[in-house]
Design a protein around this nucleic acid. Structure first.
Lengths: 159, 159
DNA sequence: GATATTTCGTTCATAATGTGAATATTTTAA
DNA sequence: TTAAAATATTCACATTATGAACGAAATATC
């Protein structure tokens, strides 16, 4: 009896694992499409767009700081910032207190564009939530949180 | 009264949208890390790995077919297949019925590697599910399905 | 104060992911 | 038979990213 129930359990688990894998893959694809859309809509390579969105209540950022937030190499940030400067969205000044450091900040155009992007992204997520009713939304977020925690826990063990 | 409740609702929705955006971003990051891990573990660029996993019960695939499944340009597939051939994981033969077409299939080594990857990925998702109890797993999958549908519905409208 | 070490940003070589136009070859339709 | 369509490849280009090497400036050590 114990063995049979264990076997059924294993079978269910296999099915659920398959389903989870599939759902995650489809969501990833969906997010990939959204990236492309955003990138086209705002005429920015997506990495530059993400970089722009880091200035959120923060007047100045450094290359190092941006690299940490984006979790990329500093050399990558140098290139991203160069692109954003060429597009007139950010500007660089030398830190008066430390000549090694360059302080990067949004221009007026950059500020405006970042607000546009932010508004668009918020609206997008709002629309997703509005596909559900109140109770579903609440539960969905809870279970998504649960999944995220589970994924991160497994990721920790992976190393 | 109606106005007040509507305003509270809007406030809640804003908070939930923020939370959803955050959760999705973290899950994306987690998946990105998993891609890197898989890629390193199986000594394959991730795109080649995905390509390898398409032979699942299917003996032969064509460049066009792979391009459709991966949703990339045919020229991309040409390069991926070239890489997999160099690694001895797939092989190409001319279709005897149509000289334009090249039939691509797994080598023995490719078959073996693809099974290894499959087993590893199944185990990974199994571990994620095992972070939860039976009821949580079932609900989580339902709500993830709901989210996926909502995301795709919104994406449809986006165009 | 002089020297060694660390920090910060840049440049360069390299790799992976991907598109789209042009091309060659073969098949199918007119 | 000729025109059109399908299949795969090549090439130029764009984006995302890393890591080593480097120069300049700040900090620690002697």
């Amino acid at each position: 009896m114990n063995e049979i129930s264990a076997s059924i359990n294993e079978e269910l688990l296999r099915y659920q694992a398959y389903r989870l894998q599939d759902l995650i893959a489809e969501m990833l694809k969906c997010c990939e499409g959204r990236k492309l859309y955003d990138s086209g809509k705002f005429a920015l390579p997506y990495a530059e767009l993400k970089c722009l969105m880091l200035f959120d209540g923060q007047r100045y950022l450094t290359v190092k700081g941006i690299a940490q937030k984006l979790e990329v190499a500093k050399s990558r940030v140098t290139k991203l910032v160069k692109g954003l400067i060429e597009k007139g969205l950010v500007e660089q000044i030398d830190d008066p207190k430390d000549a090694r450091i360059k302080l990067i900040s949004l221009t007026t155009a950059g500020q405006k564009k970042s607000e546009e992007i932010d508004a668009f992204q918020k609206e997008l997520h709002r629309k997703i939530l509005l596909q559900m009713d109140l109770g579903e939304r609440k539960n969905m977020l809870s279970y998504l949180e649960l999944l995220r925690s589970a994924m991160e826990a497994v990721k920790e063990d992976l190393v």
